[in-house]
C-alpha cells in the first residue's frame, strides 16, 4: 500500500482516536493525582504517627512497585476478590496512585522547606494549625513544588502508554494494532513518536511558563 494512503486513511484516524483516549486518561488522572498528592504530603508531614506511617508505606509501595505491575494488580488481580474495573478505570486509578505518590514527595520536601517562622506567625494571628497549613504553608510549598510536579505530569503523559498493556487502546495501543495488522512498524512508531514528542515538548514549554509565573522573588 502507498505510504501516503496508509498514513492518511488508516494510521492517522486510528491514532487520533487513541490520542483522545490518552488525553482523557491524563486529564482524569492528573487532578486527582495532584489532590491526593497534597493529601498524602500534608498527612505525612503534619499527621500523627497513625496517619504518617501508613502513608509512608503507601509511598514506598507505589514507588517500589513497577507501574505496569500495579496496573496488572488493578485489572487482572482485583477481579479475584470480586472487584471488576474497566481497562480505562483501572488505568486511571493506577496513574492516580503513581502520580500522587511522586507528587507527595515533592510537596513534602517543599512543606519541610517552608520556614518554621511562617507557622508561628500564622498561629500568632489566631489561625488554627489547619488554617495555617491551608492558607500560609501550602500556598508557599505548592509553588516550590511546581518544577517537580510538572516533571511528574510529563512522566504521566509517557506512562499513560502502559494502559495499552491492560487493553485500554490509547495512542500507543492504537498504533500497535494498526502496525501489526499492516506490518508497517517503522512508519507507525515514527508517527507515534512525533505525537509524544509534541505533547512532551509543548508541556515542557508550558511548564516553564507556569514556573516563571508562580516564581516568588527570593
Amino acid at each position: 500500500m502507498d505510504t501516503f494512503v496508509f498514513l492518511t486513511t488508516i494510521l492517522l484516524p486510528a491514532l487520533f482516536d487513541g490520542l483522545i483516549v490518552t488525553l482523557e486518561l491524563i486529564a482524569t488522572a492528573a487532578p486527582f493525582g495532584l489532590l491526593a498528592g497534597i493529601g498524602v504530603a500534608v498527612g505525612r508531614t503534619y499527621g500523627s504517627r497513625w496517619i504518617s506511617l501508613p502513608l509512608r508505606g503507601y509511598v514506598a509501595f507505589i514507588k517500589g512497585c513497577p507501574l505496569l505491575l500495579l496496573l496488572f494488580i488493578l485489572y487482572f488481580g482485583l477481579p479475584s476478590i470480586g472487584i471488576r474495573l474497566s481497562p480505562f478505570l483501572a488505568s486511571v486509578i493506577g496513574f492516580i496512585f503513581c502520580n500522587s505518590a511522586y507528587n507527595s514527595e515533592y510537596i513534602r520536601g517543599a512543606l519541610l522547606s517552608v520556614k518554621e517562622g511562617q507557622m508561628i506567625a500564622a498561629q500568632a494571628l489566631g489561625m488554627s494549625r489547619w488554617q495555617s497549613i491551608r492558607y500560609i504553608i501550602l500556598p508557599q510549598a505548592l509553588r516550590r513544588a511546581i518544577p517537580g510536579m510538572t516533571n511528574e505530569f510529563i512522566y504521566l503523559i509517557k506512562y499513560s502508554s502502559l494502559a495499552f498493556m491492560i487493553t485500554a487502546v490509547e495512542l500507543t495501543g492504537a498504533g500497535k494494532l494498526v502496525a501489526t495488522k499492516y506490518f508497517l512498524f517503522n512508519e507507525t512508531f515514527v508517527v507515534i513518536a512525533i505525537v509524544y514528542l509534541f505533547l512532551v515538548t509543548v508541556t515542557t514549554v508550558a511548564a516553564n511558563m507556569l514556573e516563571k509565573k508562580f516564581a516568588v522573588p527570593t
Binding site: K158, Y159, S160, S161, L162, F164, M165, T172, K176, A179, F185, N186, T188, F189, V190, I192, A193, Y196, L197, V200, T201
Partner: peptide, 19 residues
C-alpha cells in the same frame, strides 16, 4: 530530547518491531 520525550514502551516497540 528524543529519548527523554518518548515512553519506554514506544521505544521498545520502535526498536523491537521497527529498527
Amino acid at each position: 530530547w528524543f529519548f527523554r520525550g518518548l515512553p519506554v514502551i514506544v521505544l521498545l516497540f520502535l526498536f523491537f518491531f521497527g529498527i
